[in-house]
């Protein structure tokens, strides 16, 4: 089974290009499509109807949609072991999280009119494939400059230009998907840890697994009760949460915090 994640800001053309890719692949492979979003989406229903492939929607609601994606990935894999390719579309709201996994293929659909690529985080820098969209809206010179800037922040990326309206580029991405490696075990690893917030992943867990995440969360919670939560910076980190992550990652000693409570 191959596991493909599409990430990109809303309106970048992810869904349109995914449709063209599904069209390229659906006759030769058993596909499954999962759409993540925050509040509402009908894309899963449209795709299921149009291409006759199973699809599901996952709405994050009050949770961070990318953290939620990581929480849901194991379930999606478990329920779709009979499929050849799972295509997952993220909500695309965060440039920092990008729940790409080491074992699968991460594709960033990048809107060429959305500004300087250097301000993008892992959503671009960790992508295996960068699909540049809307190139027809700007000049050749600007396209070439943009391309050079993308390669500067992600030199390993395979770059291709896509057009959601005409389907241009779908063929190339379908080829990249065919060439990509299959997922071997159920346990996937995030390419990049997520920013600090409130769950095990927030405390820097990268193994997508309920037990692992809970373990990390409890360890984080315990430390959280021992630090002053003043974000004073005396430990060398900007915030207590960052410090806690560093301790859990083995990068810092907890004694570095001058105010840490002695454990009872």
């Amino acid at each position: 089974m191959k596991f493909i994640i599409f990430a990109g800001t809303p309106g970048s053309g992810k869904t349109s290009i995914i449709k063209s890719i599904i069209q390229e692949l659906k006759n030769d492979f058993k596909l499954f499509f999962a759409k993540f979003d925050c509040l509402q989406t009908l894309d899963d229903e449209k795709i299921a109807k149009e291409y006759k492939i199973p699809a599901v929607k996952k709405l994050a609601g009050e949770l961070c949609p990318d953290h939620y994606t990581a929480l849901e990935i194991p379930k999606i894999i478990k329920e779709n072991k009979d499929k050849d390719i799972i295509i997952l579309e993220t909500a695309g709201l965060c440039l920092r999280c990008s729940p790409y996994v080491e074992e699968g293929l991460g594709i960033n659909v990048l809107d060429i009119t959305s500004g300087d690529p250097s301000r993008y985080g892992p959503i671009l820098t960790e992508a295996d494939v960068v699909a540049i969209s809307k190139g027809d809206l700007i000049s050749q010179a600007e396209r070439e400059i943009f391309r050079a800037k993308v390669l500067k922040v992600n030199p390993k990326a395979k770059i291709t230009e896509v057009n959601g309206l005409t389907g241009e580029g779908a063929f190339d991405i379908a080829e990249f998907i065919k060439e990509s490696l299959a997922v071997k075990s159920e346990k996937l690893t995030l390419k990049h840890s997520m920013p600090s917030a409130i769950c095990g992943y927030c405390y820097g867990n990268r193994i997508i697994d309920e037990t692992e995440s809970r373990k990390r969360f409890l360890a984080g919670k315990e430390l959280k009760s021992l630090v002053p939560n003043l974000n004073c910076g005396k430990c060398g980190y900007k915030s207590c949460n960052e410090f806690i992550r560093a301790v859990l990652d083995g990068k810092a000693q907890k004694e570095k915090c001058p105010f840490i409570k002695k454990e009872i």
Binding site: D136, S139, Q140, E144, L151, I159, T160
Partner: peptide
């Protein structure tokens, strides 16, 4: 990817970049 064979002059009529002509070139 660094060797793009086709340069295109599509329908776009305007530049997006806020810069002087000489600096841009």
């Amino acid at each position: 990817p660094k060797r793009k064979l086709i340069a295109s002059l599509a329908q776009s009529m305007n530049f997006f970049t806020d810069m002087a002509v000489g600096d841009f070139l």
